[in-house]
Design a binder for these strands. Structure first.
Lengths: 154, 154
DNA sequence: AGCGAATAGTCAGTGCCCTGATTAATTCCG
DNA sequence: CGGAATTAATCAGGGCACTGACTATTCGCT
């Protein structure tokens, strides 16, 4: 007794949603390139020459994870990293020809996959779906950086 | 160019939602017990004496993951496993006193956390939020077990 | 009874995800 | 200029999640 109904717990639903997505991605998009890897490729298509930290910021990955993902993409020859001549701490990242090709190919498949994934919802519902999730995620994300309290001088 | 807007990709949103939840859980509920671990505890409060496989089914974890989670909970002394005398393949799982206590404590905190997490949505929106996510997740889950095609005799 | 299929659990391997500590380079500022 | 604080990246360590291969036990059926 005193147990809880997990289907009313947003965290549990979020986990299940991601599992479902993982499954579909694996069968419909790629078994080699994962969804976070695609997100990194995409970020570098938009802004070639980003450094690791900024890539992580764009796609929502922390420093450690982004390092792993980038190292995998590098091993596969999909991107290259060179030291920033103007700031020796940074590596500048850039897709290779192969990386661009892979991104183009996966973009098509990803679109198809999203259609299947969202098929249970009407077009209107899909809009609501995005809106609600984004608002919840953004709000929680906001709690992370507590908006720089005004009097922050020690 | 030819890049994609990730904020219209459900998979990306699902990942961000889960990260947001992870963060909040960590700060508001527990740094020791994770959300999947709590889900397992909860399943065993509802049905003491389940075996691993069934627990996994209840909370949405595959056989490998559930084994890891249960081993961690066992190490912490929150549950015990005994071989099923009637089926030597199974282990029967049961919470200890400590496990029950932990579950009770976390149930309260989890409820508070969910309120904060969902605060950006009105009560009506929260209902929609659950409904939409559940429908998408269930549908994708359904594609996994293709509903036993009628003529399935080789 | 006995053999083959099915089932519960484990193990190895890969990948994502976070924190905290460390290292190297740069920037701020007295 | 030169030391302190900041910043990019790495590393160690713990946890979740999936697949495919393997072991042990049970079940189904002849």
């Amino acid at each position: 007794m005193a147990a809880v109904d997990l289907t009313t717990h947003p965290g549990h639903l979020a986990r299940r949603l991601q599992q479902a997505h993982y499954l579909l991605w694996n069968t419909m998009v790629s078994e080699e390139i994962t969804s976070p890897q695609f997100a990194v490729l995409n970020a570098l298509v938009v802004e070639p020459g980003l450094d690791q930290r900024t890539v992580g910021e764009r796609v929502g990955l922390d420093r450690s994870t982004v390092a792993e993902v980038i190292s995998r993409l590098g091993r596969r020859g999909l991107l290259g990293k060179v030291r920033d001549p103007r700031d020796g701490r940074r590596f500048l990242l850039r897709l290779t020809e192969d990386g661009l090709r892979t991104h183009r190919k996966l973009t098509v498949r990803t679109a198809r996959m999203n259609q299947v994934f969202l098929a249970p919802l009407s077009a209107a519902e899909q809009g609501v779906f995005f809106d609600l999730i984004r608002r919840v995620a953004d709000a929680a994300e906001g709690l992370r950086h507590p908006a720089e309290p005004l009097a922050a001088r020690p």
